[in-house]
Nucleic acid binder design. Structure first.
Lengths: 209, 209
DNA sequence: TAGATTGTTAATCGATTAACAATC
DNA sequence: TAGATTGTTAATCGATTAACAATC
């Protein structure tokens, strides 16, 4: 067998969380962990942990638990994180800077190869050794270099146009921080990170506890 | 009746998305919309839209649809967004700057009243007129001002300690961008925004399409 | 061996969708 | 009136949990 059966969407969204926590355990020198301990630490049930891990062959030992390193590698392999993807950042504001400066992204297989801003004020400046370019340069840039993902950090409705441009330029993945709603199509995969949506849920929970 | 029956957790997480889209429609001058159109635009089913709206009395008209303004206000009211919450930002790096500079947060009922950084290099500088303070100042600050939410923008495992401090200082809500796993307890409500988790899911989807 | 913990299946739970009478 | 669309219920789907034989 390769994988037990089709992994659920919900389980896939949990994998990065497991991975992150396993990295933390690794750093703390913990080499072995049971589904019960792990589930307690990250706030799910142990059943769920075992079920999720069974998808990619967690290789736990009855009576013992899981080997942290092995599990970490299995998830890494499953997510194909060693297969690096090239990313450009659209928008050189604070959020664009934050993404460009985040070393974790490269560790997890995402390489920032360009930063573009619609306003000229930033042109020529650098973030982490990567020059900020004008949007006009983008079509040629994409022709010359392979771009997998565009991170949209333009926080206005204006992002609408820019996202359409990205898609027509052939970018296959959009990491969208703008307030615009975008849907998956057969041409493009979207991952929305609407930061204030998550804050609003927190607000609701605080007000209704 | 106040609300039809207990709203589901999944539906609550969709409300900010509806709200955001209704704001966009409003700006575009659209005053009326059917569940079918709306569902198409944001990528859900029309059944789900009608079911979700029924929770807070969407007041749609058969044959016509929903009034955009009315619906927007209903969601706003349901989420109690006019009831402002005070937020502090921990970490004055690019991400901290991005949150402090984001005008949408205030519009949605979150007011940044302080910024703190564990490193002295930023002390005394300002973001949007708010002075960056040392972490040492935090206990007194919290004694004097009411703090509802701490946004943790320290992107290292070191955030662990800081989050514990926040909780012991009595902060009731944590908006967590750090790689540390934190769980809700009866003392504190957590909302995690693990940015690279969402990017990893995008990577997975791109590689397996 | 005794105790702990796995992998897996069946039972449960919750969320989504389909369908349609009511009504603008 | 005819057409469109709602609100709501029942049916379906998918995800989570409980349980336990197998096994370290």
């Amino acid at each position: 067998m390769e994988y037990r059966n089709e992994i659920s969407y919900a389980a896939i969204r949990r994998l990065p969380k497991y991975y992150r926590h396993l990295c933390n355990l690794r750093k703390a020198g913990i080499r072995q962990i049971s589904s019960k301990e792990l589930s307690f630490e990250i706030g799910v049930t142990s059943s769920q942990v075992r079920n999720d891990f069974a998808y990619f062959g967690g290789e736990g030992l009855p009576g013992i638990g899981y080997n942290v390193d092995l599990l970490k590698n299995k998830i890494n392999e499953f997510l194909k994180s060693d297969n690096t993807l090239n990313m450009i950042i659209i928008g050189a504001g604070y959020l664009g800077h934050a993404l460009a400066a985040n070393k974790n992204l490269e560790k997890k297989g995402f390489k920032v190869i360009g930063i573009f801003d619609p306003y000229d004020q930033f042109t020529g400046r650098e973030i982490k050794g990567i020059e900020i370019m004008k949007m006009d340069c983008l079509p040629l840039f994409i022709k010359r270099q392979h771009v997998d993902i565009a991170a949209i950090t333009i926080l206005s409705a204006h992002a609408d146009e820019i996202i359409k441009d990205m898609i027509s330029l052939g970018v296959k993945g959009i990491w969208n921080f703008s307030p615009v709603e975008v849907k998956n199509t057969d041409k493009v995969m979207i991952e929305n990170s609407h930061l204030d949506d998550s804050l609003m849920v927190l607000g609701y929970n605080l007000k209704n506890k």
